[in-house]
Amino acid sequence: MTTAEQPTPRKKTGRRPGGADTRRTVLEAARAEFAARGYEKAGMRAIARAAGVDAALLHHYFGSKDRLFMAALEFPVEPKAVVELVLAGDRATVGVRLAEFLLGLWEQPGVLDRMLALLRAAATTEQVAQLMREFVQEELVRRAAAELGLDQPELRTELMLSQVIGLAMARYVIGVEPLASASREELLPLLAPTFQGYLGGA
């Protein structure tokens, strides 16, 4: 058979292969799906269909829906890590562990910027606020409350979160002094007892 007689290769069809462009497409589809259906109702399969990929690729990239959500919204901290920190070790020192973790986390490059961007978006856009509420309630509050073994565990967890959000707004957004310029060493002994009271039961 001559070159002119050779058949034209068929174009491959099927799901989109993996790669940087595919990851961006998946994240765009995830943002749209979460915005349209909320965190709880959004499904990995629906996101995969919208992105034109196999659902297995989403699990390969992200592992689970909560990790996909964090990547899509650039969430600065994994709630599971916070829950594990709260529950690990002596309950009498949970306040110190949590305060050290948060103060250290906010000093990591890029984390504070992402956190503040989400807080500002949630404060001005109800859609973002609703997504944040659902995500935090499902992945942090309920998980921690189920293991705390204290009275009113969900309320205690939400009070702790209100303390964290209020601190972030006052220290980093509004810039209230002397809080804004206080060092970690100054803040730690003041924050730790408050967190301990909420989550340690003491």
Rank of each mutant, 00 (worst) to 15 (best):
G149Q: 11
L159T: 07
L85E: 03
A71L: 11
S183D: 06
Y61N: 01
R24W: 04
L140S: 03
V136F: 03
P153D: 08
L68E: 01
G18D: 08
R10N: 03
Y172S: 12
Q127F: 00
P9T: 06
L155A: 15
A144V: 10
L105A: 15
A71V: 06
R133Y: 12
E40A: 03
R37N: 08
V173T: 13
L73A: 05
E33A: 05
L150M: 04
G38T: 04
G18S: 13
R31N: 10
A35W: 06
Q196S: 09
Q152F: 11
A121Y: 09
E147V: 01
A4I: 10
S162G: 15
D66Y: 01
M70W: 01
Q163L: 15
M44N: 06
F34G: 01
R23M: 10
A56M: 12
E100P: 07
I174W: 13
E154R: 05
A4Q: 14
L116E: 10
R67G: 00
S162Y: 13
V128Y: 05
L131S: 05
T124Y: 04
G175C: 12
R143P: 11
A30S: 08
K11A: 08
L155E: 11
E138H: 01
A170E: 14
R143L: 10
L188N: 14
E74W: 02
G14K: 04
P178N: 07
L102W: 14
M1G: 15
S183H: 14
V82L: 10
L85Y: 08
A46L: 07
A180E: 12
D113T: 14
G197E: 01
A56Y: 03
Q108Y: 05
L161D: 04
T25W: 09
E147Q: 15
K11V: 07
T3E: 15
F101S: 09
Y172V: 08
F135W: 05
A72L: 05
E107I: 02
K41H: 11
E126L: 14
M132P: 07
P7D: 09
R10T: 06
D90F: 04
L102P: 12
K11G: 02
A35P: 05
R16S: 06
S64I: 04
V53G: 02
E107Y: 00
F62P: 00
R24V: 09
A168Q: 14
A117G: 15
T8L: 13
G166C: 14
M160T: 12
R23C: 05
A123D: 14
T8W: 08
Q130M: 07
T93D: 13
P189D: 10
A32E: 12
F62L: 04
Y61I: 00
R10A: 07
V96E: 15
P17N: 07
S181T: 15
G63E: 06
M132H: 13
V96P: 02
R91Y: 02
Q152L: 13
R23G: 03
P193D: 09
G63W: 10
V96D: 11
V82D: 08
F135D: 04
R37I: 00
T25N: 11
A182N: 13
G200T: 08
T3G: 14
T13H: 09
R31S: 07
S181Q: 15
A51I: 04
A99F: 03
D113K: 14
L148K: 04
P76K: 09
D66M: 05
F101M: 10
A192R: 06
L116W: 04
L161E: 09
A88N: 10
L98S: 03
A180T: 12
L131V: 01
L188C: 12
A30F: 00
L112M: 11
G43L: 03
L140E: 00
Q152P: 00
A72G: 06
